[in-house]
Design a protein around this nucleic acid. Structure first.
Lengths: 214, 214
DNA sequence: ACTATAAGTGACCCATTGGTCACTTATTCG
DNA sequence: CGAATAAGTGACCAATGGGTCACTTATAGT
């Protein structure tokens, strides 16, 4: 009988662990939100014990920040780095909102904004972090498109900052709907038609002559 | 020495308790959300012990439903009962969204939709309840205004159900902003200007001629 | 080989809170 | 006045989960 050398109970993989933990945590945060995500589950999903997770991330919030940076912030930065330079401001704005829609709203990643929307009220640090790292970046992109259109006379001279919020509001609503109320309705929302309807109305409103009375 | 009859340690006030508990619970839910609201705190705020609360409401969810019905649903029903019959569909829609804005978004009551947005994902029963009791009611009102305008030719023939969502999305965003991100920005959002900007764009978009090319 | 050490772990602590229950007491009614 | 009973209560339970710590063990360097 060979006393078969029992395989090691675990391996040292210090360089692979951080990313594996990040992947596991992203999936869990998306599925369950911030509070409901159990660090023990995240660790097991990554194939390690909870105490091991703490060797790489100091606490839950640090883990969360790392996840958001590696997933959402990276996505937006990529968008910002490859600007779809369109002929008109209309097209640029439409392309931008479409990109946000396809890459975030209509993807599993939407779980992150959903989580933030829900829990930012109870965790001011999360709100501040997300505001500074994500919202500000996204806003810069939208504001640029709006200002371009206003400067060129393509759009009416609205307050761009308010325009930004009104332009992205339907994206937020789509996220909320998808994650919280989808199951309450017989037929699901058609995301493409929804986006098209929004762009149609928004661009119509932006272009309409200022003084139109009833 | 008169052995002064010590005042009763507590009083029986079976008819006043339910409303007092509702008031306390509304305030707590608004301040802290669903999960973070402690039933012990609610009870103490109403001047009773936690076990007393359970004599009137079977559990946390039942208490929550009672709160929403007595506060939010009542508000919407009142709105529905006194329809501001305006001359045009434009005015009707504007009046309706303004009313929602003033009575809910720009009032402490906004804490309730905020809470639902945040926690509906983790509590399907809350989502279902809010969808059936609140969203459906609100949607009926907005849809009526939209359909009226479409029927009269005042609005373009968009899909009213999508229009509903796009019309209310900025209200939701305002709620989220107010509760979660207000503190992250130097100057606060001017709610009145924000609403005006939204109505301006929305009505502009709804009225614009269908085929306007760049 | 063998040792230094970084990587990994199980068991534990502690605070938290929805919900329950046996008990006390204010009030009402005959 | 004195039950009967509904209103009210404090003390408790069980489950939960973030975070810690003393300990074990894989592995690289010599």
């Amino acid at each position: 009988m060979m006393p078969a050398t029992s395989p090691p109970r675990w391996q040292r993989r210090a360089d692979a662990r951080p990313q594996e933990l990040l992947d596991a945590a992203l999936a869990e945060f998306i599925e369950r939100g911030y509070v409901a995500t159990r660090l023990d589950t995240v660790a097991r999903r990554a194939g390690v014990a909870k105490a091991t997770l703490y060797r790489y991330y100091a606490n839950k919030f640090e883990l969360f920040k790392a996840v958001v940076r590696s997933a959402v912030v990276a996505e937006i930065d990529e968008l910002a780095a490859n600007p779809a330079k369109a002929a008109s401001a209309r097209e640029e704005l439409a392309a931008l909102l479409s990109a946000f829609f396809q890459r975030i709203v209509n993807s599993p990643l939407s779980g992150i904004p959903k989580l933030v929307i829900g829990e930012a009220g109870n965790f001011p640090e999360i709100a501040r972090f997300y505001h500074d790292e994500v919202i500000d970046r996204a806003r810069a992109l939208v504001l640029a498109a709006l200002r371009r259109g206003i400067a060129s006379g393509e759009f009416r001279a609205i307050d761009a900052d308010y325009g930004f919020r009104i332009a992205v509001a339907p994206l937020l609503l789509a996220i909320i709907w998808k994650h919280s109320f989808q199951a309450c309705e017989p037929q699901p929302l058609d995301f493409d038609r929804y986006l098209a309807a929004h762009l149609d109305l928004l661009l119509g409103g932006l272009t309409a002559p200022s003084a139109e009375a009833a």
